[in-house]
Write a protein that binds this DNA or RNA. Structure first.
Lengths: 148, 148
DNA sequence: TTAAGTGCAAAATCTTTGCAAATGT
DNA sequence: ACATTTGCAAAGATTTTGCACTTAA
């Protein structure tokens, strides 16, 4: 039962996915799991300028492929990545939760707590998964705009 | 009340948005409204290779800005554009409908008919709009895979 | 030791910008 | 005629690819 939640053992996480425990990977995992919103490649690049850009691309691709992180798009259309919970695995992702995109800071929050209502699609469509995107202001930005 | 539905008068549509009636624009409108799924820049580029790539970028940007089309991302993260219905206008889009992304052909369908269930977000978030993405097989692809 | 991962250089894409020529009103 | 819009050239940005060097197991 992959429970990559608080106090995650990153080394084990990598190991269990046949990925070597390297420094760049550990740092990426650490950054991603410490954040409440999803992380983009540019975010990573800015935060870890000593790691090669290409390496970051490859790490993200490998993690996504293995089901360690999943991709969501923010309002700019930039890919952002967030740690997967539970049942994501090699090639199969389940991010059937609410994604909240802040129109102000452009951050994307994965709100897993919420369960989604059932959706019915028209005849002919075969639904495999459903994701809900909400747009608006995240707590930080809504506080800020209320204050001032 | 912008009813850009069947038998649209594209010229009028452009005019009402203070856009000149040019050939590239009419062709883009024509292609987009003739399709059941959203259209990407690469789609347009392939279909109208005589129109400059840059012109297409600018047309899409202008249309989106004016609220004639709206943007959705497909499973590759590529922006796709679909005609807006009714109440989109200068800077404000309302695409609160179901977007269906086909995992096979990667097309995105805007299913406006469906009304979305209410979604509740956690304390602190201020929701402005909600969009639902479903993934799976579109009628065309599901038929195809069933047949053979 | 050796397969996997990283860094660097370079190619391939994709998107934006500036400006002169063309076009719509 | 005049303001837009287009096309082309070129700059910027983003993403991918190839390969030699390094590192975890």
């Amino acid at each position: 039962m992959g429970q990559h939640k608080n106090k995650i053992d990153f080394e084990q996480l990598l190991q269990s996915h046949q990925l070597k425990r390297t420094n760049p990977r550990l740092r990426v995992l650490s950054m991603m799991s410490s954040r409440s919103s999803a992380t983009s490649q540019p975010d990573l690049e800015a935060a870890m300028s000593d790691i090669d850009r290409v390496t970051l691309y490859r790490i993200l691709a490998a993690f996504e492929e293995k089901g360690i992180i999943h991709k969501v798009f923010d309002l700019n259309g930039t890919a952002n990545y967030a740690m997967c919970t539970a049942d994501c695995n090699e090639g199969h992702h389940h991010d059937e939760h609410l994604h909240f995109s802040c129109t102000n800071c452009k951050n994307v929050y994965c709100l897993e707590e919420l369960h989604l209502p059932a959706i019915t699609v028209p005849e002919g469509f075969k639904t495999e998964g459903v994701t809900v995107y909400a747009t608006g202001l995240c707590p930080k930005c809504s506080k800020r705009s209320a204050a001032k």
